[in-house]
Design a protein around this nucleic acid. Structure first.
Ligand SMILES: [Mn+2]
Ligand SMILES: [Mn+2]
Ligand SMILES: [Zn+2]
Ligand SMILES: [Zn+2]
Lengths: 132, 132
DNA sequence: TGAGATATGAGAATGATTATTTTATAGTAC
DNA sequence: GTACTATAAAATAATCATTCTCATATCTCA
């Protein structure tokens, strides 16, 4: 198993503190408050490594940046199409989707993810952009 | 409505020809056979524009590049985790998922997408990489 | 037909991520 | 503890996808 260095431990702790599904650079900023000399590359390398080892989830949601999640149980997400914020959607995971899909493809299916899109509460309050 | 320039028309035609969900640069290569002087920026700009106008779908699937789809009806996808190939999954779209999710969030939900992951038939035939 | 609006092509710029190189730290045998 | 080896970190460079800028071209319609 992967060695738990100070850097890895703190990255993991900071990730576990939040429900915001931070990006690598957001996490970098959080971690730097405790480890000011850590490099951005270290954050990327270890997030990747921890995701490969199943310690965290790497979310390949829409938008330009990958996001990370300390909750490794299977669950769904929603992304705000205005601001990019990502939150959990707490509905039961539908395992039968995979069985259903398996019948219609020659792929060997490994899993699935549902991503909802919408407008987050904060963005609903603000006026629509681009209308002057 | 958006003006149908030669470039836009040919991008659209080339996209409609394939079921492979090409990336912008794959499409650029396809289009260049008919319009050798088209710029990559033009392809990006028009794909974006056509997606905004609902003429095509921009797929924000996992992986490093966005992919495009001339089929605008709602449907699900599967992505090969080895080679990145993306195919359609022809199972009925579950509209009740959105209703279900709406009860558990304050977001105003706009839609959802399901992305399966798996190993495509081609990659199943090849030996696993990284084992020497 | 020609002024204004819109689009293109070329190339530069940006931003996220990955790779490389150098340096530091940790574990281990003596 | 010292020397050796492996692993990881930090700094930095490189890569790659995408977006932006701007000069030129094309279209629209009065
Ligand atoms: Mn989550
Ligand atoms: Mn499709
Ligand atoms: Zn928002
Ligand atoms: Zn494959």
């Amino acid at each position: 198993m992967i060695r738990l260095t100070t850097q890895r431990q703190i990255i993991l702790e900071e990730l576990a503190k939040v429900k915001t599904h931070p990006t690598a650079s957001e996490l970098y900023d959080m971690v730097r408050k405790r480890l000011p000399r850590i490099g951005l590359g270290t954050v990327y390398r270890n997030l990747e490594l921890m995701a490969e080892n199943g310690m965290i989830l790497k979310l390949e949601v829409g938008g330009t940046q990958k996001r990370f999640d300390a909750t490794t149980e299977d669950h769904y997400h929603i992304r705000c199409s205005r601001c990019g914020r990502v939150d959990d959607i707490d509905i039961p995971v539908i395992d039968s989707l995979v069985e259903s899909a398996a019948k219609s493809t020659d792929y060997q299916i490994l899993g699935h993810h549902v991503e909802f899109t919408g407008i987050c509460p904060d963005c609903q309050k603000k006026p629509k952009p681009g209308l002057q």
